[in-house]
Design a binder for these strands. Structure first.
Ligand SMILES: [Mn+2]
Ligand SMILES: [Mn+2]
Ligand SMILES: [Zn+2]
Ligand SMILES: [Zn+2]
Lengths: 146, 146
DNA sequence: AATAGTAATGCAATTGTGTTGCATTAGAAT
DNA sequence: ATTCTAATGCAACACAATTGCATTACTATT
């Protein structure tokens, strides 16, 4: 999906060993054009590479901590993972279909936010602003129309 | 907290029985100026009114479905509940302290979003836009400063 | 008032997602 | 070879939330 990313290099640059498991987890996410759950990722990776469920969770935690991946909340109880914003990937909001659980990336210009007011007046420390558009995806709309 | 809300009336208008449990759950949320978790609510209600944990979850589900409450996601695995936006309560973003788990309501003007572009071009059905500001609250900042 | 039907609730068990503790394995360094 | 460390596996656990089924409270009908 992303021709600018060499996953092994990304891992090494972040100072972590580029083990086969880690490369495969990162590749799975990077090759997909929408964010995936830990279990999605696990099922993809285990097709080629004997790996434990727990290892997937640990790799995801590590790569989020290293700012390689971003953890997205669905509004449900399951986290989704996508590539973290960087030079090649602008931050962008996501769409979550409450009917089928599919998460999609939206264009970074689709929702403009102005946080000046907030930045000036908020007394705490702001670390991230998560914007999630919830609704029904076109696939689910079609199915409902039956 | 809200002098414009009669909780029994709200329930009846929505077409559900205003049972003691339901009124108490709704009151607990309405009287609080920040969103609460199901267990927060349970602990408040059970001080006055023998109630089961499961009943709290069921009431919350019902009142969210009836658009009386809104379910807010924290990014963690626990949902928070607040009054749903209505004539008296404009929709607004929330602040979530990743250190202590406290959720706060922000002013509806603090984050301006422009969704024109999205509304025009998005092929699915948009039902809600959730904006959550994550960071560290002032209390936790103070504690860290020790 | 008795009866029957429905809605609300309680309780135990279960689920889904994620985490922890500890043992084992794989690699790297000496 | 030996030693050290990082990565992984596996079983048990934690926790919020859900489910199935029994019980209770309430309403309507007779
Ligand atoms: Mn994305
Ligand atoms: Mn609020
Ligand atoms: Zn869908
Ligand atoms: Zn805090």
């Amino acid at each position: 999906m992303c021709e600018n990313c060499n996953y092994t290099t990304i891992l090494k640059t972040a100072g972590v060993d580029a083990t086969a498991n880690r490369v495969s987890v990162l590749e799975t996410i990077g090759n997909n054009n929408y964010p995936l759950t830990a279990m999605d990722i696990y099922h993809v990776v285990e097709r080629t590479l004997s790996i434990n469920r727990v290892t997937v969770y640990r790799i995801l935690d590590l790569l989020v901590a290293k700012n390689i991946l971003e953890r997205l909340s669905s509004g449900g109880r399951t986290a989704y993972f996508g590539m973290a914003p960087n030079e090649n990937h602008l931050p962008h909001p996501h769409f979550y279909c409450t009917s089928c659980g599919r998460m999609d990336c939206l264009n970074s210009e689709s929702v403009r936010i102005n946080t000046e007011q907030l930045q000036k007046t908020f007394p705490g420390k702001i670390e991230n602003i998560a914007i999630r558009v919830d609704g029904i995806c076109t696939n689910c709309l079609k199915e409902k129309a039956h």
